[in-house]
Design a protein around this nucleic acid. Structure first.
Lengths: 251, 251
DNA sequence: CGTGTTTTTGACTTCAGTCAATTAAAGTGG
DNA sequence: CCACTTTAATTGACTGAAGTCAAAAACACG
């Protein structure tokens, strides 16, 4: 099996919480997967694209964003290392939003059609891919709540909690360190805030002793207070129930 | 075939843009479907439910909402007559948000498991159900943008455009009438606004001659200006390309 | 080591929130 | 059918959180 397909297989097995069956592994091995990397600011796809590609992000971070009439931008989601992106193209014709790299990023890309066929052939894999795409929708709904009903500082705290848990091997524990691969402007675009508000909110969270900041590295100091001030509950992330996860406070 | 399963079959055929094959129809006919109706304010499911049910809404309107710490509420989506609801339970264990009726509503309910089995057995149906759930996610992302980056009046105009197109036989044409089955408070909860702002924005859109209002009935007067003032493009709704749809302005 | 980007800070503004009071509408029961 | 109750819509006054703009400082990178 080539390296790309193997990474896909591992990612799928991890989500299935079991090794792939031999015939599943064989099907995954036939996927035409291409390794690519792009620079910060480069696009994986555009809002109107109908090409239908998805990928497993190996390194970096992808931003899903929309532009508005008045030139402002809203980031409607992010994809972290180890996550799939663009899975909605398996069943939809268009991409719905721009997808671009916030930092230099590498990923393993496949056409939507063979991935869909893979899911049809192996229902367990199909369900997993479906679930991954649905979780992205669940996150979007939480973001609606975040942007619609929480204060600037709470939005930021919420986002940090989410990213800490979603990032590879994520946890929300004191001392944990988290590399924020976004500029403050991009954070603002994710939270429906301006640059200034992000900066002030960050200072506020630091002043409250919830976290520390050095460059783009965040250190979580008080995870409980951080969650509370961000009104954060991990439920919507559907992280599952591995032994690791169970330690996480679920509010 | 019982009436409920037939309604499901029709809804699926409509989305597939073709009649069901006999074996597809036979599978749908075996679904254990239950007709239910609930009063305004009653819950279809709660945020933490793990029961896993989905439904085809026959009459009324469902609201998907989340509560925040400080007692406020955010509506993260709505489901209209003729749409499916709760499809994410096909692949996810929990519901993620409360689902409740905004007006007395009737629906045809099925357990998630047999619906998933149906999709596995018939890939075309599976893809359609998948697509329907993904469109809900796409809508949520647009809502993030709406709440995060648009003015109060623009948010409202955008919501009205969306509901006009999504409602049964929807179109965005002058003279078209639309029954808003939401109180102004619920509209505010959908847009991240307070009651007063909704009321004033509505007055504003009326004053600008974009629409007229009598009770909860909205009449669209100037669809083009309405779309422009709401920064609305129908792309994210994935309405497909029926002859009817093609007439819609896509911005 | 210089250039461009990002962060940080301050001053001012504004949109929408909040609160409260009033009006209108929709149900309810006698 | 009408009086009464409840809920929703409307309007005004005041407030406040965050936007905007601008400038300075810090940083990152070639």
């Amino acid at each position: 099996m080539n390296w790309g397909a193997e990474a896909w297989a591992n990612a799928l097995a991890q989500r299935l919480r079991r090794p792939l069956h031999p015939d599943e592994a064989a099907s995954v091995a036939t996927l035409p997967i291409r390794a690519r990397s792009i620079a910060a600011g480069d696009y994986f796809c555009r809002e109107t694209d109908t090409s239908g590609r998805c990928c497993l992000l190996c390194d970096g971070m992808l931003i899903e964003s929309k532009l508005t009439q008045n030139g402002t931008r809203q980031i409607v989601g992010v994809r972290l290392t180890g996550e799939f992106a663009g899975l909605q193209t398996i069943a939809l014709d268009a991409c719905d939003n721009d997808v671009l790299a916030s930092v230099p990023s590498a990923f393993l890309e496949a056409e939507a059609a063979p991935v869909r066929a893979l899911g049809n052939r192996h229902p367990a894999i199909g369900k997993t891919l479906f679930a991954e795409a649905l979780v992205a929708g669940s996150i979007a709904k939480e973001w609606v709540t975040n942007v619609g009903r929480r204060s600037a500082a709470a939005r930021l705290a919420h986002l940090i909690c989410e990213l800490a848990l979603r990032s590879d091997g994520g946890s929300l524990t004191a001392g944990r360190t988290l590399k924020l691969l976004l500029t403050q402007e991009q954070i603002g675009d994710s939270l429906g805030l301006g640059r200034a508000a992000v900066n002030r909110s960050l200072g506020e969270l630091v002043a409250l002793g919830l976290l520390a900041q050095r460059g783009n590295v965040i250190t979580i100091i008080d995870p409980d207070k951080l969650q509370r001030s961000g009104d954060f509950s991990a439920r919507y992330l559907h992280l599952g129930q591995s032994p690791h996860d169970r330690r996480r406070s679920a509010r």
